[in-house]
């Protein structure tokens, strides 16, 4: 049944057949943008100046070209962040598309005994391969890794906090179920043991508390 398409376009050559002469690449469901937060100097830093857009991509091959040629998380300076967000969403609470959202997050406190590069890579792959949510959930906005003195923290930002907001198509219960399902998949990708908690918190709660350590709303 696919003969017609194949013949019309000639032979399909993937990067696995010939990494220098491939003629097809594997599209991603969404276009993604990689952002970087530069560590501040400590005083008077404007966060907007520290947050830099690195590059956008929309194929599997483009992703690997970038990943294989950028500083691994383990070698970033303290107070750096990588953010991988859907293109046209800024990785900030203030972005209108994040305003009603929240995030699942987990802090790896044993910095020396974990392989943060491998964990972050698994999270990136789950995001771009679209396996964190089901089609139509429309919740995943992006993923973040924070490099800090005491921990590496990985977050997954969602569009909602599971409540039916204005124009929402889910009941509160359905909304929460979707968030819990995404949280459970995120936890599995992180390889966090069952007895450990991954927390969810709304961005507005984080903002009002003035700290990202405010009490979690949901845990899984």
């Amino acid at each position: 049944a696919t003969n017609g398409a194949n013949q019309a376009d000639g032979e399909i050559v993937t990067v696995f057949h010939d990494p220098e002469n491939f003629n097809v690449k594997h599209p991603l469901q969404h276009k993604w943008t990689l952002w970087f937060t530069k560590p501040g100097s400590g005083k008077g830093d404007n966060w907007n100046e520290l947050l830099k857009e690195v590059i956008s991509f929309d194929s599997v091959e483009d992703f690997w070209g970038i990943y294989n040629n950028i500083t691994p998380t383990s070698q970033l300076a303290l107070k750096s962040d990588y953010h991988l967000f859907k293109t046209n969403v800024r990785p900030e609470w203030e972005d209108p598309q994040n305003k009603h959202g929240g995030r699942w997050s987990y802090s790896f406190k044993e910095r020396k005994s974990i392989d943060i590069d491998s964990i972050w890579l698994q999270v990136l792959l789950a995001a771009i391969g679209e396996t964190l949510e089901d089609e139509g959930d429309n919740e995943v906005m992006g993923v973040v890794v924070n490099v800090r003195r005491a921990f590496f923290r990985i977050g997954l930002w969602t569009r909602t906090v599971g409540k039916s907001g204005p124009g929402g198509q889910r009941t509160n219960e359905e909304g929460k179920a979707v968030l819990m399902k995404i949280g459970a998949r995120f936890k599995e990708v992180l390889g966090v043991p069952d007895e450990e908690q991954v927390d969810f918190m709304g961005h507005t709660d984080s903002a009002h508390s003035g700290s990202t350590r405010a009490k979690a709303k949901i845990t899984i």
């Binding site: 990494p19 992703f63 690997w64 792959l125 771009i128 391969g129 679209e130 396996t131």
Partner: peptide, 15 residues
Amino acid sequence: CLYDRKFLLQFQEVF
């Protein structure tokens, strides 16, 4: 376009 992590990892050493 859904890709599981095993599929995606195969590109790591190729591209």
